[in-house]
């Protein structure tokens, strides 16, 4: 049975999917996620290194998905948001552990490790980042 997604591609993205590994330009201080291999501002003067994002940010914008793509039927309705990380980069991720009525723009969120999808019953399980509202201690 063919794999739905290339194993090599999934494996290469583990550092960014599991622990938000991006890059940082130590010349200008810009952060990049997904990781960029070079800095578009500093170009050849840029000094790019791997950098793990803290996993905290706020909701920049969001939408509610009622008609899911294949494999996401159990989660409907789910919240898909653009998250602005503390470090600056914006990324698209699902908001989990809450309901659509509790979500708002500007809400502080925290990265959590969740199951994203599965290649059927016998294929590999894709894990990665989602975000949840910050829990009060």
């Amino acid at each position: 049975m063919p794999h739905r997604k290339s194993l090599g591609l999934v494996w290469r993205r583990i550092p960014q999917r599991y622990r938000l590994m991006g890059t940082k330009c130590f010349t200008c201080g810009s952060h990049f996620f997904p990781p960029r291999p070079w800095c578009p501002k500093c170009r050849r003067k840029g000094k790019i290194e791997k950098h793990k994002m803290k996993g905290r940010g706020k909701i920049h914008s969001y939408t509610i998905v009622n008609v899911p793509q294949q494999g996401f039927d159990l989660e409907v309705p789910y919240i898909l948001a653009i998250i602005e990380l503390l470090e600056g980069p914006k990324l698209t991720a699902e908001i989990t552990n809450t309901e659509p009525e509790h979500v708002s723009i500007g809400m502080p969120v925290k990265m959590v490790f969740r199951k994203i999808s599965e290649d059927g019953d016998s294929g590999i399980i894709h894990y990665g980042y989602k975000f949840e509202p910050e829990l009060k201690e």
Partner: peptide, 16 residues
């Protein structure tokens, strides 16, 4: 568990 949780995701949250 949530529909996107299993023993691995729970273990990761505990470890973190």
């Amino acid at each position: 568990p949530g529909v996107d949780e299993d023993a691995a995701t729970i273990a990761v949250q505990c470890a973190r």
